[in-house]
Structures are given as structure tokens and as C-alpha cells.
Amino acid sequence: MSEAILKVEGLKTSFFTDDGEIPAVDGIDFSVNEGEILGIVGESGCGKSVTSLSIMGLLPSPPGKIVGGHIFYKGEDISHAKESKMRKLRGNDIAMIFQEPMTSLNPVFTIGEQLMEAIRLHNHLSKKALTERAVELLKLVGLPRAKELLKEYPHELSGGMRQRVMIAMAMSCNPKVLIADEPTTALDVTIQAQILDLMIKLNRETHTAIIMITHDLGVVAQMCNRVVVMYAGKVVEEGLVKDIFNHPKHPYTEGLIQSIPDLYGKKDYLHTIKGSVPKPGSIHKGCLFAPRCEFVMDKCRVNTPELLGDSHKSRCFLHQEKA
């Protein structure tokens, strides 16, 4: 197994509001190996996006703040690094793309200006070299008419094309890690297929590790090597994709997989997980999933299970007892 390039240990991120401290990420651990595609999957409010913003040092602050744990990049803790240090990492070592390609590009600057800025921030290149690199990047992400595109504005491009530009910008300095926060959620299925294909291709060619943050288990199954399942600010299960889909070890993961309507078969009723995700900040004792769990035991309501296991970890008494 290759080196972990990014390692998150016991990360806790909270939002401080008028109602007090609301923990959005509550002590999570995972690591990303060089060149792999790691999925982080979970439903809205599980803390997956906050995790990514914490790594990038882009939490809206106030009210967001990292209150505990460490984030190691190449062995160095960057969880409380200075802004100037983070600026050098951002875009250069760790890059990020976002969910809304429609609004993630600045509407009043050309594609060229925005793309070249991303390159120039971390490289000293002549104007000619800059343009060449920008054209090269646009070709890399499969955009036609690269030269003309440099002079165009974001509103002249479709959603799929804009997301390609975002990817070109993120890849501009050959980052070690690319964090993709729901990159295809706002796109149509056929365009999503194009973008996922492109990301897999880039991963193979450049060996940039990708953290794929998504709510779509389909995307995870088709793209990722390993996956981290999050629920209410905690990691509930982690392992290789095939292990998790074939033998889920947490009732939440299991329920999630079964709730998806099947494209290739028809069942009369869908499996459901009763209730809904707990509101962040609500106080709980025991396992956070206990109120919705169909296998709940007495001790689940009292004690909090730990995340245990070797390559396939889960946070559930049921499976830990079996093992």
C-alpha cells in the first residue's frame, strides 16, 4: 500500500452560533493515499462538506472553527497553519472543485483571466508560457476551441463546460490532492458521465489523489477505491468499496444501499430508514443512529461505539459482537 498523503485525525469542527456550539464534524479519522480515489459519502448535514472546507482552511470563520484534532499533509499538521502557509498549499498542493459550476466561476472575468491567475499564483511564467499552459489545460479537460475559450466569459459556457474549466483550474498546478465536493450533483446524467470519466482519466494520468465527496452511492461505486461513510458528523464505516457494498457492517450503510431504487430490477416497495437525520447540535447519548436503527440494542442507547476494524472499519456494536 502506498503512503498516506493526507491524514485526518480526530478532526472536530464546530459552528458557534447564537444557540451555542454546534459540532458539524465530531472527531473523524481517515487518510488518503497517494493516487487513490477516496469517496466520502453521506446525506445532507453529515459534515462531509465541512470536512473538506476544514482541510482547505476555507471554513467561513466566524462562525466555523476547528476545535480539535489534526490534519496532516505530507506529515505536517496544517489544521492550525498560518494563512500565508495555507495560501501556498491551496491550489498548488491541495485543490478543490465545487458543486455549483454555474456560480463557482467569477462572472465578470474571462475564462483565460481566471485560469491564468490560478497558474500564476504558484508559478513564475512569462505571459506567453502562461497562455500556452492555459490552452494545454483546457485541452486536457477535453474542451474544444481552447484558444477562443480563453477570451470568453463563464455565462457563455454550459454547466458541463464550466465544471471542466473548474477542473482545469484545479489541475493547473498539478496538485497532490483534489477535493471534489459533489462535482456532478448539479449536472445532468449524461454530462455527469462525461465529468466522472474525465476525473478517472486525470487520476490515472496524473496520479492526483481525489477525495470525492458525494451523496450518490452510484458515483462512489463506479469511481472510488475506498469509501468513508459519514453520519451526523462521525465516520460510521470505512473500507474498500467492494467490501462496503457487498458486506456493509453498519445498519446505516446497509439501509442507504437498500433505499436506492434499482435501475435493473423492480421491487414493489423500497427499503426505508425510518425517521430523519438528527439536527446537528441535538444532544444524544449512545449511538447517534440508534433512534433510526432496526437492529438497535439496549446498550446502543447508552454507550457510544468506537470505529473498529482493520481495513474495513465500522462503528457498530452489532457487527463488532459478531466479529
Binding site: M56, L58, E83, M86, R87, K88, L89, R90, G91, N92, A95, M96, F98, E100, T103, S104, L105, N106, P107, V108, F109, E117, A118, L121, H122, M166, M169, A170
Partner: peptide, 26 residues
Amino acid sequence: KSDYIRTAKAKGQRMIWIVYKYALKN
């Protein structure tokens, strides 16, 4: 508050530059 300001930060741009160049024009 907009997404493209977040994008500019993610590139590693300085805040003062983001405010006066990126945000002001918008």
C-alpha cells in the same frame, strides 16, 4: 458570500486582492 469568491480563495489568492479585484468588480 458567493461561490466564486470561495473558488478564488481555493486557488490560494490573497484576501485583499480578492476583495479589491474580484469582489469589487462584481
